[in-house]
Amino acid sequence: MEAYLVAIGIIALIYVILSLGLTLQYGLTGLINFGHVGFFAIGAYTSALLAFQGVPLVLCFAAAAVLAGIAAWPIGLVSLRLRDDYFAIVTLGFSEVVRIVITSEKWLTSGVQGLPGVPRLYEELGGFTAQLAVFATILAVTLLGIWMIRRIAGSPFGRLIEAIRDNEEAVQALGKDPARFKIQVLVVGAAFAGIAGAFYAHYITYIVPDQFIPLVTFYVWMAIIMGGVGRVSGAVVGSAILMLFLEGSRFLRDVLPGVSEVDMASVRIGAVGFLLILFIMYRPQGLMGDYTKR
């Protein structure tokens, strides 16, 4: 039971790190990034592939963050001149391109067969102790991430990206180029997703392209919407709610008769969707309240 709880905790924290990245991008800056999972995938594969080459895990994680960040840079350059909705489509397309490239480039990624046996963190500790050490590490990284996002939000940079969210043209009229800020935001948010991907790969130890479908992006979106858009606490609480529901709905099968194991996956997605609808109807500002209520 403890092992199960720690496992859920680790996955929840991975979602928190993903949510922090999206909080910076959407919550604070208003960038509709529908391709978050693409950067998550780049992080996961980068770290896993380097680890297979015997690169120390610390460097693998760093490379995951850096590469995911670098991947965001051209996306920013190409698409920041687009309107919000087009930007959303470009990012969604980007994440699908990443998934398809991973699927097709078999020489590197083994395609659909995926990469089994990704080295674990703290393998030498073994068993439950190793798991606790992983949990402690990801918790520390999450806290560092929370500190970073709060620091950014409270800085002149944070003030300006919120200004961009509220009115981009007014920012231009004051002599500041929104694109410069948005690119930085995209890169940093993507680096967060990259780190989350690395943790995911080394924790799950088996990655396949199908784990990186757009649904993951939208889980992160649900988390920040349920928690409260534009708030760091919202990212944390929202991820917790998401995880409770994703995991809790496993037990739905005990009360729903005649639902097969296969059906269950769909039922769970349906349940999360239903939860999101309830939030939009009764608590649109999220549990912690969004940026409009300060």
Binding site: R159, A163, A173
Partner: peptide, 18 residues
Amino acid sequence: FQVPREFRHLTVRENLMA
């Protein structure tokens, strides 16, 4: 601008600081 484009979720002070 003809129609004011304040940064509506920022305070007056923050608008000016920005």
